[in-house]
Design a protein around this nucleic acid. Structure first.
Length: 858
RNA sequence: GCCCGGAUGGCGGAAUGGUAGACGCUGCGGACUUAAAAUCCGUUCCUUGCAAAAGGGUGAGGGUUCGAGUCCCUCUCCGGGCACCA
């Protein structure tokens, strides 16, 4: 079965074993195995036209090593791969060339799959999934329907990020510094009707459950910051004069309420129009218009001066009945808190800047008495302290004052404790063709009344356009998947509508108000008055949708009745290890947690978190130390490396570069060292005729040093794999092979043990050697070697001698030697003696088996 | 501005508070060869020294300790995240 090559020729042995694994289905993960399960998940790739990037095999090799190791450890390992294939590049290619995205997608997947297979990863290809496959997105749509029914999906006309270049709206998470995350195009605000998912309903749980996750700290912190929980109070400020109006503000510092010398409301705040006085209206209107035109980049640019206008209105401070002016300023965001603030210039940097700019009084109400007298009046001061100028509350520490002021206001129904989140609801619709269609139709108001109760969401979802009200109604679950129609043009309209809106024969349907079934409007209307004329939703879902739950579909990829069957989930559960890039820290990883928690609430899964253990592989830079990019011409193509050095060498080298999580540059010369190592492994085991080396004996290993090093290597490689310290695992294997090279003879058992250690890293070579050493394939299921702790022990140990902390020699001493014996041995050494000469020993520190430090002074 | 992470030879990196530089790359010297490739051996932190050895050395400065790359404080630089969220 092994190849007949006499030399190490990866180009011959790698395809051979890849075919073997494929034909034998070596990595098929049975669902009914009588073994403990282990689920290793990779972040699945977007199959771009550019093919595999070197960053893909980095993470995938690490997970593959873990998967193969766990298999050898007796686990039934689930290690799947699939395609996150909806997305803009494929659609843009379709726009440019007219090629249907399905065609491009199939071609790209074909290419990716081939590249991945050439790397020898141990995926169970029977479980391959593709988010654009109707059998897959049927369940994405199904989950959406459940969200819809439970009131977690709604439409909202709201200012959203619109990217003129991409001709679509983007989520907050997809906008970085006023530019699109994908493509780096400028974005602007537009008011559009959008689907939104109520992720904020899960904010507290998403935050709370982070604590129990075994994730990189930085990623947890990023999610924590993104959710941005803050505790404070909402306070009611009545508007002065003949009006019932009042402004509600949110503040984290109710203790500074006496220092509020003005208020600010956001330009978009609905109260602006109601409170503005006649003489100020023109100026306010102009300001509001201007603010609306500003991009958020302009609005959030810290360097710029604060702007705002006075509304002419005054509000009453509920604690002291002071009249304070109400301003409109764009430094207050309508989308956070209540869209209005009480401004305390003495104790807030931003308010201080604004008050200084517009000559508004600044009143200190907090004093930090830990500061020297001279500095206590330095403003703004934003820390805690003791209240001053605050009526009955003066003299209280700020934290206690905050509680008492909130309590007093609550009694008068003018305030209450409040928790706010920075997290906004998730903007979930895109004006694109290449995405999951929403399983939703729109009905006019009068028809919505005819809708069966079972089809109605908890709260009606509706919007108004051209004076008519439209209501959302769900398509029957049994009618899923709702597939994408054929279209003639993929060009977005640019008006905020998807290309699907142009496909009349798809959009217009007869909708059954009892069952949710639809038939095309081009067909005759079916019998019965419960068949209503309806329009399909023409937006599609964002790319994140499919990846929110893919970890579940791998468990049961062909199930036609369930997203995942309870039995399959019962056995496989959620991934034990999830490996992927840190760039998804808040996007995919937050969305997926949200959907998974929702599925948990539905009872589809019985675990509240999808990814218990997460690891981010670091970025591999180009040889010049810069990020790889086509324009720099420093891109390393995995295919080229495989041709020159083989997949095993590429895998091992990627792991050997440095710590998996670190950002590190690629060096073409470095891979030579790995190639040399693999050739050396071959040569130590195989002679020139391709047979087992004659110096390998059948007898048990007798050389104690070989045995000790072998067991040390078993221990280190195993422990390092568990911790994904794969670079040092490879170092240890190199040390071992260097040792074998120096021995005259070693046993067959020693050789076979080493091959098993090498197998997760370089599986092709390991299979080949395994068979040539007389075993039958596959090495993948050969049990992982156990190390014998007794073999690691030596009779004597090396103790380092130090005088005053400096190395002055060492000696092998019996393990149980006591301090006096070792001290005597040390003193015997001339080098130690020299440094003790003329000195008195003040102290001796002896760490058995490690070190003997003699502290001596004249 | 705030919050993280990092800084070790010519390079990638290794080191439960216990000989800093494992392993690999590169360079240099040598062996084998007609020659080359491949392979093997030696050497490769700096200074002094023929050597033995001595001194210095993990971004900078201080501290804790018998002993610090590792722990603590201050600072510099680099990378990442957040950034008017009241």
């Amino acid at each position: 079965m092994a190849t007949n090559r006499t030399d190490y020729e990866p180009a011959a042995i790698e395809p051979h074993w890849q075919q073997y694994w494929e034909s034998q289905k070596t990595f098929r993960a049975p669902d009914d195995a009588d073994k403990p399960k282990y689920y290793v998940l990779d972040m699945f790739p977007y199959p771009s036209g550019a093919g595999l990037h070197i960053g893909h095999p980095e993470g995938y090799t690490a997970s593959d090593i873990l998967a193969r190791y766990k298999r050898a450890r007796g686990f039934n390992v689930l290690h799947p791969m699939g395609w996150d294939a909806f997305g803009l590049p494929t659609e843009q290619y379709a726009i440019q060339t007219g090629t249907h995205p399905t065609v491009t997608n199939a071609r790209n997947i074909e290419n990716f799959r081939g590249q991945i297979k050439r790397l020898g990863f141990s995926y169970d290809w029977d479980r391959e999934i593709d988010t654009t496959d109707p059998d897959y997105y049927r369940w994405t749509q199904w989950i959406f329907l459940q969200l819809f029914k439970r009131g977690l999906a709604y439409v909202d006309e709201r200012p959203v990020w619109w990217c003129p270049e991409l001709k679509t709206v983007l989520a907050n998470e997809e906008v970085i510094d006023g530019r699109s995350e994908r493509g780096n195009h400028p974005v602007e605000r537009r008011n559009l009707r959008q689907w939104v998912l109520r992720i904020t309903a899960y904010a507290d749980r998403l935050l709370e459950d982070l604590k129990g996750l075994d994730w990189p700290d930085s990623t947890k912190r990023q999610q924590e910051a993104w959710i941005g929980r803050s505790e404070g109070a909402e306070i009611e400020f009545p508007i002065a004069g003949d009006t019932e109006e009042s402004l509600r503000v949110y503040t984290t510092r109710p203790d500074t309420l006496f220092g509020a010398t003005y208020m600010v409301i956001a330009p978009e705040h609905p109260a602006v129009n109601k409170i503005v006085t006649a003489e100020n209206r023109d100026a306010v209107d102009a300001y509001v218009r201007k603010a609306a035109q500003k991009s958020d980049l302009e609005r959030t640019d810290l360097a710029k001066e604060k702007t705002g206008v006075f509304t002419g209105a005054y509000a009453i401070n509920p604690v002291n009945d002071q009249k304070i002016p109400v301003w409109v300023a764009d430094y207050v965001l309508v989308s956070y808190g209540t869209g209005a603030i009480m401004a305390v210039p003495a104790h807030d940097d931003r308010d201080h800047e604004f008050a200084t700019e517009f000559s508004i009084p600044i009143l200190q109400v907090i004093e930090n008495q830990d500061l020297p007298e001279a500095e206590r009046a330095d403003l703004p001061y934003t820390g805690p302290g003791v209240l001053i100028n605050s009526g009955a509350f003066s003299g209280l520490p700020s934290d206690e004052a905050a509680r008492r002021i909130t309590g007093t206001l609550a009694e008068r129904n003018l305030g209450r404790p409040s928790v706010q989140y920075r997290l906004r609801d998730w903007l979930f619709s895109r004006q694109r063709f290449w995405g999951e269609p929403f399983p939703i139709v729109w009905l006019p108001a009068q028809d919505y009344d005819k809708l069966d109760a079972d089809l109605r969401p908890e709260e009606p979802v509706r919007y108004t356009a051209d004076g008519r009200e439209w209501y959302a109604a769900p398509i029957a679950e049994s009618a899923l998947p709702l597939t994408l129609p054929e279209v003639e043009s993929y060009q977005p309209s640019g008006t905020g509508e998807s290309p699907l809106a142009n496909v009349k024969e798809w959009v217009d349907v007869w909708y059954n108000a009892r069952t949710g079934q639809t038939v095309p409007a081009t067909d005759p209307r079916p019998e019965g008055d419960h068949w209503l004329a309806a329009r399909r939703e023409t937006n599609t879902m964002p790319q994140w949708a499919g990846s929110c739950w893919y970890h579940l579909r791998y468990l049961d990829p062909r199930n036609q009745d369930h997203l995942v069957s309870p039995e399959r989930f019962q056995y496989w559960g959620v991934p034990d290890y999830y490996i992927g890039g840190a760039e998804h820290a808040v996007l995919h990883l937050l969305y997926a947690r949200f959907w998974h928690k929702f599925l948990y609430d539905l009872g589809v899964v019985t675990e509240p978190e999808p990814y218990k253990k997460l690891f981010h592989q670091g970025i591999i830079l180009g040889e010049d130390g810069e990020k790889m990019s086509k324009s720099r011409g420093n891109v390393v193509n995995p295919d080229t490396i495989i041709e020159e050095h083989g997949a095993d060498a590429l895998r091992a080298y990627l792991m050997f570069l440095g710590p998996l999580e670190a950002m590190k540059p690629w060096k073409s010369q470095g891979i030579e060292g790995i190639t040399r190592f693999l050739k050396k492994v071959w040569r130590e085991l195989i002679d020139r005729e391709g047979n087992r080396q004659s110096r390998i004996t059948d007898a048990p290993e007798t050389d104690t040093e070989t045995l000790r090093l072998l067991h040390e290597t078993i221990k280190k490689v195993g422990e390092d794999i568990e911790a994904l310290r794969l670079n040092t695992a490879i170092s240890q294997m190199m040390i071992f092979v260097n040792h074998l090279q120096k021995t005259d003879t070693f046993s067959l058992e020693t050789g076979k043990t080493f091959v098993r250690l090498l197998a997760p890293f370089c599986p092709h070579l390991a299979e080949e050697l395994w068979e040539r050493l007389g075993e039958t394939p596959s090495v993948c299921y050969a049990p992982w070697p156990e190390y014998d702790p007794a073999r690691l022990e030596t009779e004597t140990v090396k103790v380092v001698f130090q005088v005053n902390g400096k190395y002055r020699g060492d000696a092998q001493v019996p393990k149980a030697a006591d301090q006096d014996t070792v001290l005597a041995a040390a003193k015997d050494q001339p080098r130690v003696a020299t440094h003790l000469d003329g000195k008195t020993i003040r102290k001796v520190i002896y760490v058995p088996g490690k070190i003997l430090n003699i502290v001596a002074s004249p």
